[in-house]
Amino acid sequence: MAFSNPSREQIKDILRQSHTIAVVGLSDDPSKVSYMVSEAMQKKGYRIIPVNPKATSILGETCYARLQDIPEKVDIVNVFRRPEHTPPIAESAVEIGAKTLWLQLGIANDEAASIAEQGGLQVIMDRCIKVEDSILLPSGK
């Protein structure tokens, strides 16, 4: 069976019920899309946790090298990495008990989706979290 994203209403519910977003591949360069998207989500009230082994702090938040290093509950694992790197990220998202694996616009991987779904996570692929949030929750949660 081919993958299909949750409905817009389901995505709205996911966003409404989520507070903490771990961003895998978040760059400390303000000109990068991952930074701009994460900054916008932070300004909307989401807690952003950067996952970047090469930085110590991004957007005023402590960076972690791996998802497993994050000392608190994560609702969404938002991924800014090439598709071929996403299956191990999906495994880590399952391991930490995240609720949703979200692969950003232009990123899709059926193996990662299968790993996450089998681990009980909702999966969204090839969609921008900032765009979805802006459309579905324009005035915030």
Rank of each mutant, 00 (worst) to 15 (best):
S18D: 05
L15K: 04
P87F: 06
P30S: 01
P138E: 04
S92P: 00
A108G: 11
R66L: 09
F3I: 10
K99E: 12
G119V: 08
V123T: 15
I11A: 10
P71V: 00
E132I: 11
I135R: 12
G119L: 10
D69V: 03
K73G: 00
V77Q: 03
Q118R: 15
A98H: 06
S57Y: 01
I70M: 05
E72R: 10
S139P: 00
N5A: 11
I76Y: 03
T100A: 05
T86Y: 06
T86M: 12
M125W: 11
T62P: 06
K130F: 01
K99H: 10
M41W: 02
Q68S: 14
S114E: 15
H19N: 13
I107A: 06
I58H: 03
I96D: 02
S38V: 01
S18I: 05
I49D: 05
P83Q: 04
S114R: 15
L121K: 10
W102F: 11
G60P: 06
W102E: 10
Q68H: 08
E117T: 14
R8A: 15
I49L: 14
E72K: 11
R66S: 13
G106L: 08
T56Q: 14
A113G: 15
N78C: 13
G45I: 00
N5K: 12
A112G: 08
V51T: 09
V23A: 06
I11V: 15
N78E: 15
H19S: 11
I96K: 03
L103R: 05
G119D: 10
D133G: 00
G97P: 07
V24K: 04
S4G: 05
R66G: 01
P87K: 07
L121Y: 09
P88H: 08
Y35A: 00
I135G: 00
T86Q: 05
L103F: 08
K44M: 08
Q42H: 02
I96P: 03
D69G: 03
D110N: 13
A65Q: 12
Q42L: 01
P53C: 04
I96F: 01
R8E: 13
I107F: 11
G140F: 02
P138W: 02
L136E: 03
L26V: 07
Y35N: 09
Q42E: 01
K73P: 04
E9K: 14
S31D: 11
P50Y: 03
S38I: 00
G60A: 03
F80W: 12
I96T: 04
C128A: 10
R66T: 14
G25Q: 07
